[in-house]
C-alpha cells in the first residue's frame, strides 16, 4: 500500500492515524498528542478537515457541534521577537 500523508507538516500518515484511533478509541486531541498530526508549522490548518473525516469514518459518529480539536491562538505562527517587541501596540 502506498503511504498517504495526512499531516504534511509532520509527515504523519493515514495508517498511523487510523491505527491510533482504533487502538486507543481516542479523541482528536489525543490523536494530535500521540501522532503529532496537526501539530506542525501550519497548526493543523491543512489537515484538520481530513482528520475530522477520518474520525467520522472510523468512529461512525457524525461530527459534534463543538469543533473536534480546539482551535488555539495564535492562528498564525508568530515569532517570539514579534511578541516581545515593546512597540507592539
Amino acid at each position: 500500500m502506498d503511504r498517504i500523508v495526512i499531516c504534511r507538516c509532520e509527515e504523519v500518515d493515514l495508517e498511523e492515524i487510523e491505527q491510533t484511533l482504533i487502538n486507543y478509541q481516542c479523541s482528536m486531541r489525543e490523536i494530535k498528542l500521540r501522532t503529532r498530526a496537526g501539530m506542525g508549522y501550519c497548526g493543523g490548518r491543512t489537515c484538520r478537515p481530513a482528520l475530522n473525516a477520518i474520525l467520522e469514518k472510523v468512529s461512525g459518529e457524525k461530527q459534534p457541534h463543538q469543533i473536534p480539536l480546539k482551535v488555539q491562538p495564535p492562528v498564525r505562527p508568530v515569532s517570539l521577537g514579534r511578541i516581545g517587541e515593546t512597540n507592539y501596540e
Binding site: 502506498d2 509527515e11 481530513a50
Partner: peptide, 10 residues
C-alpha cells in the same frame, strides 16, 4: 479548501 489526500500529494 479541504484536502483530498492521496499518495504523492506532497
Amino acid at each position: 479548501e479541504s484536502p483530498a489526500p492521496i499518495p504523492g500529494w506532497t
